[in-house]
Structures are given as C-alpha cells and as structure tokens.
Amino acid sequence: MLFELENLCKKYGRLTALQGISLSMDADAVGLLGPNGAGKSTLLKVLLGLLPFSSGDAEVLGHDVSNNAKTIRRNVGYMPENDCFLPYISAVDFVSFNGQLCGMPRNQAFRRAHEVLFFVGLEEARYRQLGEFSKGMKQRAKLAQAIVHGPRLLFLDEPTSGLDPQGRDEMLSLIEDIRARDIRVVLSTHLLPDVERVCDHVIMLNEGELVYAGAIADVQKEDEQLLEVRTHMADDELLDRLKERDFEAFYDDDRLKVQLTDELGAEEVLKTAVEHNIQIRHFVPEQLTLETAFLRLLDEANQDLS
C-alpha cells in the first residue's frame, strides 16, 4: 500500500493546513493536485516526517509515519520545490553527500552520484558549482539527489516549476522513465497536464480538505456524457433554449458544452436545435480534460464549504 491516511490533521497555530484527510491508495504514479495553499506541500512534508502532524494516523509504504519516519525516508526520495543546496557545492558532491546521508558508503555514493548525474543529463556539468546552474539544471540536480540511493518512492514537489517548454518536456520524460523502472512517483503540482501525462491516480486537495482520491480514468469517466456543440452564429440562443429544457449547458473556453443525462440525451439537444431552427455545425461527445474535471470538483467542494 502506498498511502494509508486516517483523519490526518495538521495545524499551524490557528490555521488548519490539513483537515482530517482519510484515504487509502495503492498506485504507481499519483498526482497531488490543488490550488496554491491547498496543503499539497504540507501533506508531502508530513508524509516524510519533516513536519509532525497534529492528529490522525499515516502510513507510507506500510510504515507508520510517527514511529518509522527514518525507514520511510530511507525508502523515499524527495525533490523539494525550492532550491535547497549551498551554491558553492559541486553537483557531484551534492548528490554524493545526499547519498551518504541515506546511508550509502562514501565510495558507493560517489560512484552512484556520477551514474545518476549521467542519467539526468548533467554529465558535462557535474563538477560545476550548483550556483552556476540554470533553473533546468538545478531541477535535474535535485532529481539526481532524490534517486541516488535507489528509493522505492519518489516525492516530487513542483518538478517542472519555472521550466521552459523544452525543459518541462525533458523533466517529464525523466519522470516517466523513472516510473518505468519500478520507482513509484508522487507528483505534487498545479500543472494538470503534467499529472495527466505521468500519473494514473490523483489526490485532489482544496483548503486542506480531500476533494478526490482515485484513478484519473474514473474522474474523467464521470464526464463522458458531455457534448461539445457549435452552431451557425446561434450558440447563445441554443444555450438559452437548452437551459429552458433543464439541460446543464455552459461555455468552457468559448465553446458551448452540454452535460447529458439519462433523461436528457444527445437526441434531445438535436431536437431542441431543430425546433428553433438552429443550424448545428459541430456536435461531438467530449471526454473532459483533467483540468475541467478538477475545476468542477473544486467548484462542488467550494459550494459544499459555503
């Protein structure tokens, strides 16, 4: 089992960062999603034992976080969001040092540091000081230190943050490659396309509360009965007519979307258009992106809160 959380709470003074999160998940790659301040980084730090939690229970890879934090950390690689190194250290020393902290003997750590720096494409720069690195190179160096000791699980906190499109694509390729080598991945990000590309499961947080935990396919399946419709200069009119007939219709990125139900199907949409003499130009069922699904779940969560 990857995670087993039971009513996990984390409070900073009066602020509750995690509000009773309970979930059980066993997956190879999990995306941790949520808007800024949702509690993603806090959850990662709590699961690593970096921060003590206020109440509840948590298990990672079958180990209790309260009592076996060291065992968990030995089996986990962590790539923090922010820079986390002394700028005057060379990349190979940085990675080797982190390997030694995980218990590797010095000579083994040094050898592995070279290997993983080759692995992430920093072979030419491995003797350069980290302070001279570009953002993309720093991210790779942080990834290298996270995998040097051969972890079973990798926590990645915003690994593509601040990268240009090419750098982002390369970083995601690295993560996909790592995942293919039997290392489980937890990817914390607010970039949903990254999660869609790398992960098969997702945990969604909002204001410290769990919004959704499960397979990405399941959250997208909920939206399979969605139609994208375009008309000949009468989108607004069709929207009004559909709403009159109790359809859930809305604009998403200037495109008219219609939510279908068992009673109100695609035929009813066409009938409505014909009745009002509206010419349909585009009529395709759509599987929503994770982003749309996430936003909808977030809206529902916010409505519940209010």
């Binding site: 995980c102 218990g103 590797m104 003997p105 083994q108 290997e115 692995f119 992430v120 051969g150 390729s173």
Partner: peptide, 14 residues
Amino acid sequence: IRDQSYQRYDGPVR
C-alpha cells in the same frame, strides 16, 4: 536518461 541504463542501488547501507 534515455540512453542510460539506470539500476536501483542494492549495495550496502550504513
């Protein structure tokens, strides 16, 4: 990375 052969570390641990 694609041209490399990454192996999990299974060596001694202090």
